[in-house]
Amino acid sequence: MQILEIWVASLLTLCVFTFLYRDNPLYRFAEHLFVGVSAGYLLAVQYQNVLRPNVIEKVAGGNLMPLIPAALGLMILGRLAKRTHGLSQWALAFYVGIYSGIAVPSYLQAQIFAQLADAVKPFGAGWAAINSALVLIGFLAVIAYFYFTAPQNRVHKAAARVGIWFLMVAFGASFGYTVMARVSLLIARVQFLLRDWMHILPPA
């Protein structure tokens, strides 16, 4: 079974890599297989982790409350037919309402207050102080760049310009980091082919 797993994984990996040459039937097969398997897997996981314990088992145990979200869930399936389309809006409204309500205090706490608290801290000693000062200057400059409510005067424009520099460095860092993360994945795939499948590389 292990050998079959390695062979299937290796052949599918090669199918995807053929796209580097150009679009071809092998790649399209792997692509469509990926879509089907991923969607099926996600659905099965949600069934096993959510629907079964939170609805089916509870209702079977005599608790009828989970029938309320189940009914709302069934209403969302109303989207499949024109006549029942309106029903799905109730379920959608419930879902969007919940996550909007969750978002207000959690974003306030985790994004805004936490970031502000970290930005306004006493500086460390030596080089750490210079770095802390740079972080504070950069933070204020980027905030200045994002402030569009009032027309910019000369000082504001200068601060916004510095903010753009900081943003560009951040975008460059994020870009480089993302590329290298993808390269790491690529190296891992090639290592898998050479080590586990072809046995050219020694075992790790």
């Binding site: 974003y107 994004q111 970031q115 950069g138 994002f146 903010g163 951040a170």
Partner: peptide
């Protein structure tokens, strides 16, 4: 340093937008 400064400001902007 520079990445953290920019990301911190962006996080606050995202937070305000989401709220």
């Amino acid at each position: 340093v520079p990445n953290l400064a920019a990301k911190r400001a962006v996080a606050i902007g995202v937070g305000l937008g989401a709220i």
